[in-house]
């Protein structure tokens, strides 16, 4: 899966900046997407393109249980979030609804990948290739259950 990086060099990007509380009443996903990341980066909606990836630091998606957060990112076109670590509810929400892939990375990928770099993620080999810089990094493999939910295309398609 290939895409370009939008990088936020900080930890603790919370669900309130991913989709502020005032929009939790919005049920139209296309409209929700226009407010994605509004609390942190008001330009996000104009710069994000279909197939982009977000790269960030530790504890991405901390805070509220709102599934609106991965939904808003997904309907903006974001296919994966690469982060040093994730808050658990956001992580699970991302795969349960098959909204996007939460990819846990190491410091080498976090430091090596820059804004705009083109990346190829291979969840079969757990490798991330930086096509712009010709570098390769390891991603942390998905756990058994998460891998199977992703493979099935969401929690309700998963059959143990």
């Amino acid at each position: 899966m290939k895409g370009n990086i939008i990088k936020y060099e900080r930890d603790n990007i919370d669900t309130d900046v991913i989709i502020p509380g005032q929009y939790l009443k919005v049920h139209d996903y296309a409209e929700l997407a226009t407010h994605a990341m509004e609390g942190l980066d008001p330009d996000f909606h104009s710069k994000v393109k279909e197939g982009d990836f977000i790269l960030s630091g530790k504890n991405f998606g901390c805070g509220s249980s709102r599934e609106h957060a991965p939904i808003a990112l997904s309907h903006s076109g974001v296919k994966a979030v690469l982060a040093l670590s994730f808050a658990r509810i956001f992580y699970r929400n991302s795969v349960d609804g098959a909204f996007l892939l939460p990819i846990e990375i190491e410091e080498d990928a976090y430091n090596g990948i820059s804004e705009g770099d083109e990346i190829d993620i291979d969840i079969g080999t757990n490798e991330i290739k930086n096509l712009t810089k010709n570098q390769t990094y390891k991603m942390k493999p998905f756990s058994e259950i998460i891998g199977k939910i992703i493979e099935a295309g969401g929690l309700f398609n998963y059959k143990p």
Binding site: R92, N93, L155
Partner: peptide
């Protein structure tokens, strides 16, 4: 513990 909407449905 808190859960998301897909898990609520589950």
């Amino acid at each position: 513990f808190g859960i998301g909407t897909s898990e609520v449905e589950h």
